[in-house]
Structure formats: C-alpha cells, structure tokens
Design a protein around this nucleic acid. Structure first.
Lengths: 124, 124
DNA sequence: TACATTGTCAACCTAATGGTTGAATATTGA
DNA sequence: TCAATATTCAACCATTAGGTTGACAATGTA
C-alpha cells in the first residue's frame, strides 16, 4: 500500500533509513565512491586519490556512506577496507519503483478517461 | 559505461541533476508530498494539510521539488496546482539500476572465483 | 628505536537547510 | 468596494553539511 511507504508524520525507521540513503546519494563525491567500489574493496587513501580534496574530507564522506549502510568497513592493521553493501539499494529502489507504478496507474487512468471522452465526442 | 555516470571531478549537468533529485527525496515531508501527488494534482493548501508545520514550510518544500524537476506547477487564478513529472525519476532509477548491475557483475565474478577454488580444492 | 604511513578525531569556518513569523500580492466573492 | 482566501516573499534563527587544518593513535618498516 502506498500509504505505508512514508507517512510524513511520525517518522518510522524505514523512512529514517530512506532519509539517510537518499542524503548519502545526493553528493557527487559519494556517488563516485560508490561507483568506484564496484571494482572491489578499497582503502581510504585509494578511494581519496581521484578527488581534489583532503583525505579527511573523503574520510568523512566514507563515514556518511557507512552510517547510511551503503558501504561496510573491514579493518586489517592500519588499513581500512571499504566495500559495497549489495542489499543497501533495495529500499530506495523499491520506493522508486512503487511510487512510479502508482503514478503510472493514475496516468493510465487519465489516458483511459481521455479516450472515453474522445469516443463520446465522436458519437455526437 | 559506468565511468560516465559521474566522474566526481568536473560536475556535469547530469550529476548536478542527480544531486538535486536525491537531495529532494532525502526529506520525508517531500517524499510524502510526492506520494500524495500520485492521487492527482493538488493545491498547496491541500498538500500542506497532513503536516504539522506551517503552510510556508510546505510551500518551500514544494519549491524544492519543483526546482529539482520532480513536480510541475500550473497556476489558475490564485490556486497553484502541483502535479508529478512522470519522467523525473528516470535518471535516479537508471543510476541505481546501472550501479547495481555493475555491483552484481563483480559479485558474480567473485562467486565464480569461489566455486573455481572449491573445485580445485576437491581435486587435491 | 626511529620514522613513515594510514586513518580518525577535534575544532573551526562558511554555506545551505528546514523551520518560524510577518508582510505583500493576487484573486475571488459578497 | 471590502473582506476573505491562496500563495509567495523576506527576514530571521538553529542546525547540519562539507570543507579546512592540526593533533593524535596505531601500525608497518628501515
């Protein structure tokens, strides 16, 4: 049911999680990191290399990705290996797909209505 | 190509658009408005009704949705009718689907590697 | 041991976000 | 014409976000 996706009022956990994931994806640096991790796990320094910003800044971005659940961290000695969390995009994708389906139903209904009206128009 | 989705550096238009849409969707009030518009177009006051915040606050949220391209506005007298822009989720969905496919390719490759190693293990 | 490397933590700055209230504008209806 | 309605604009405020720099802690290496 569309009503369960997010009530606006009374912030449930799922909604809070969507907040975090959408917000994490709203930054181009973080999206680039996510894409980069498609090549496999990587250390902080490696991930930071392409960007024209301090290592600390990238470290913060990674933290945001981590707390949103999009990436996971595995420590080995002084190295932190980051990797994608393959299931982390499920909720966002579900939200989008459901909303779009809902929209399309409405648009289809409007389309049918228009055709109906045209048909009646032709009768006259 | 995954490399074209967003280079991190040199912010192209598509990336800026994704920034705006993801950021717009990161707020539960705005997601609720989006869902609400699945029922058809609505005026600002109608959209604002369910929320425990001022009309002005909702007006601002609508503006954010509008500038991100997620909703459209049609003025008729003093009423502003908002409606969804059905194509507005295409880019986000594409991004997610492509990234996920990319991830899965890698995960499949890892899976094959594991099976390969197990096979060789059994030979010994 | 000494030194370099990896990464975080802490403090700071600026700009953006999400909310408020109060006023202004435009339109409708009596 | 006058009052009500619909909406935005403007100023303000508190919090968050994204970046910086400078320490710090832990680990690896000569």
């Amino acid at each position: 049911m569309i009503a369960n996706i997010g009530k606006g009022v009374s912030q449930n956990q799922r909604s809070a999680h969507l907040d975090a994931v959408f917000a994490a994806l709203a930054d181009p640096t973080r999206r680039a990191i996510i894409e980069s991790l498609g090549h496999g796990e990587a250390r902080v320094t490696e991930l930071a290399k392409p960007f024209a910003m301090s290592l600390n800044a990238v470290s913060k971005h990674i933290r945001v990705l981590e707390t949103s659940g999009l990436v996971r961290r595995r420590k080995s000695g002084r190295d932190h290996f980051l990797s994608i969390n393959p299931r982390s995009l499920d909720d966002v994708e579900t939200w989008i797909v459901v909303v779009r389906r809902f929209w399309n139903q409405r648009l289809d209904a409007m389309e049918r209505l228009v055709q109906q009206l045209e048909k009646e128009e032709r009768k006259r």
